[in-house]
Design a protein around this nucleic acid. Structure first.
Lengths: 190, 190
DNA sequence: CGTTCATTTCAGCACCATCTGAAACGTCAG
DNA sequence: CTGACGTTTCAGATGGTGCTGAAATGAACG
């Protein structure tokens, strides 16, 4: 009764549990498992870590660790750190959840929302053009179609405005707004 | 120059463009391509459609169409419709984007957010237990770990509150709140 | 009941994202 | 310039999701 497998390090176990939860949250968010794990570990670790330690601690390959770090840096939630007299590169995570949330929303807006909104407007424009270039019963049908696409585009636009308000306000003010909102517009009110 | 392939039906082309955009938005949202396509087509079509028409129009198998419809009904954005004197089942989509957005947020909360929050609290509880069951330097480390997990849990909790405010308010009031917010907390203000 | 028509389920296949491991690359020290 | 070390890239392997097509199921009618 002294095999390494029997001696669970409590710290490691606490970490592991949290890492798995975070990794699942990341997946719901569209981020892959390894990336989520690496992010979680960096969040929990006070010191910065190098690729080697990450790979060993999480039981993943160096390649995977390297790619995950690259992703996280592209998301802007992990920083590269160098230590004088040390050839290695270390990495550390943003430690405030609201800050990284804000950062990822901004990044998603840029990568995903903006391009898809452009395509949506193109589709709406095409629908409008088609309806104007036709007549009779067909025109009526195309106008109805165009109306529906515009309706969806309006919704999407409002949704983007909502994102923008969030990005402009930041966490503290956001919280304030909602506290105010709860008073101004209680459940059942209009 | 009269082959079917050359004669593009403008209505169909308008629909197709929109369907592809919606399908991509769905994928960003974690919903698969076919489900997104079916949803888009049902949104655009004034009449209700049966599985056959869906499969033929979108060039997918009956099985796939059936499964996609099942998903959409589970999300609560598509209704089953029966016509007297007709053995077929027809389906129609919720036509107001804000309504279906509200519905999907509620459903996601139930399916994904609630279970993951439970696991997060379990992880936090485990961390607390571990730190209280230890002493000395190890205890200090575990307390720090616990603090970080709690910090993340607090963030997550605030995030869920935000969802709840949205669900309680609905679209109209939501818009009001944000118009108010823009005045109360202009960019740069605190 | 048996037949026909509509729908759902599901085994097997195809495809795509992710992971590994090793080679290529870059960089610093001597 | 050369060797050692650290990091990144990438081809191929793996695993998992989604799709098809056909069989099973169910529901209406004679």
């Amino acid at each position: 009764m002294n095999e390494p497998a029997d001696i669970r390090d409590p710290q490691r176990e606490v970490e592991d549990r949290f890492i798995e939860v975070w990794s699942d949250i990341s997946q719901l968010w569209g981020v892959n498992k390894s990336v989520g794990r690496v992010h979680a570990l960096l969040y929990l670790t006070p010191d910065s870590l190098d690729i080697d330690s990450l790979a060993e601690r999480l039981q993943i390959s160096h390649g995977n660790a390297s790619t995950s770090i690259r992703d996280l840096m592209a998301w802007g939630v992990v920083r590269r750190v160098t230590k004088p007299g040390d050839r290695k590169t270390y990495f550390e995570a943003e430690k405030d959840p609201w800050t990284w949330f804000h950062t990822t929303i901004r990044e998603r807006r840029r990568r995903e929302v903006v391009p898809v909104m452009e395509r949506l407007h193109e589709a709406a424009g095409f629908a409008e053009g088609a309806s104007k270039g036709s007549k009779g019963a067909e025109r009526k049908q195309l106008e109805e179609l165009h109306g529906k696409i515009e309706k969806f585009a309006d919704f999407a636009h409002e949704f983007v405005d909502l994102i923008d308000v969030f990005l402009a306000m930041g966490h503290g003010r956001m919280a304030k707004v909602f506290r105010t909102a709860a008073k101004l517009f209680p459940k059942g009110g209009g």
